[in-house]
Amino acid sequence: MLMKFLTYNIHKGIGGVDRRYRLDRIVEVIRHYDPDVAFLQEVDDGVPRSRGDCQVAMLAEALGYHWSAFQANVRLRHGHYGNAILSRYPMSNACDVELTVRPKKRRQALVGHVRLSDGHATRTVVVASLHLGLADFERRMQLRRLLKHDTLASHHAHTPVVVGGDFNDVWGRLGVKLMHPGGFNSATGHVRTFPARLPLRALDAIYYRGDVTLHRAFAGHTDLCRVASDHLPLVAHLEVQVG
Score class of each variant (00 low, 15 high):
Arg123Gly: 05
Pro103Ile: 07
Gly183Asp: 03
Leu174Asp: 06
Leu132Pro: 00
Ala135Pro: 02
Met179Trp: 14
Tyr207Met: 06
Gln55Ala: 04
His32Val: 09
Leu63Ser: 05
Gln142Asp: 01
Phe5Gly: 01
Ala72Met: 09
Leu200Ala: 15
Glu28Gly: 02
Val125Trp: 04
Leu214Tyr: 11
Ala157Phe: 14
Gly133Thr: 02
Arg49Pro: 02
Asp36Ile: 11
Leu40Val: 02
Leu6Lys: 06
Ala62Lys: 07
His131Pro: 02
Leu134Asn: 06
Asp18Arg: 10
Val17Lys: 10
Met179Tyr: 09
Val101Gln: 12
Leu86Arg: 02
Leu59Asn: 06
Ile14Asp: 08
Asn83Lys: 06
Leu116Glu: 09
Asp36Lys: 14
Arg22Ile: 00
Gly220Tyr: 00
Ala236Glu: 11
Arg216Trp: 08
Val162Asp: 02
His80Glu: 12
Gly175Val: 03
Arg107Glu: 01
Val212Tyr: 04
Tyr89Val: 05
Ala38Cys: 03
Leu232Val: 14
Arg123Met: 10
Val47Ser: 06
Arg115Trp: 10
Ala135Val: 07
Lys104Val: 05
His66Arg: 14
Gly79Glu: 02
Val126Ala: 03
His156Arg: 13
Thr124Arg: 00
Val176His: 13
Arg88Ser: 06
Ala202Arg: 06
Leu203Glu: 09
Arg197Trp: 13
Leu63Glu: 03
Ala228Ser: 15
Thr213Gln: 13
His113Lys: 13
Leu203Ile: 07
Gln241Val: 14
Leu59Cys: 06
Arg20Leu: 08
Ser186Gln: 12
Ser92Lys: 15
Val212Ser: 01
Val29Cys: 03
His158Asp: 15
Leu116Val: 11
Glu42Leu: 00
Ala60Gly: 07
Leu146Cys: 00
Ile30Cys: 05
Pro35Ser: 09
Val242Trp: 11
Glu239Met: 12
Val37Thr: 05
His120Ala: 10
His158Gly: 09
Asp169Trp: 06
Asp96Gly: 00
Ala84Pro: 00
Ser68Pro: 05
Arg201Thr: 15
Leu63Phe: 05
Gly165Phe: 04
Tyr33Ile: 10
Ala38Thr: 00
Pro90Leu: 09
Lys12Trp: 04
Gly210Ile: 10
Ala69Ile: 11
His149Lys: 03
Val37Lys: 09
Asp136His: 15
Lys105Ile: 13
Thr122Met: 07
Gly172Met: 08
Pro181Val: 08
Gly175Thr: 14
Pro199Arg: 05
Ile14Lys: 05
Ser229Asp: 04
Asp150Trp: 01
Arg145Leu: 10
Lys105Asp: 15
Ala153Val: 07
Ile206Pro: 11
Lys148Cys: 14
Gly243Ile: 13
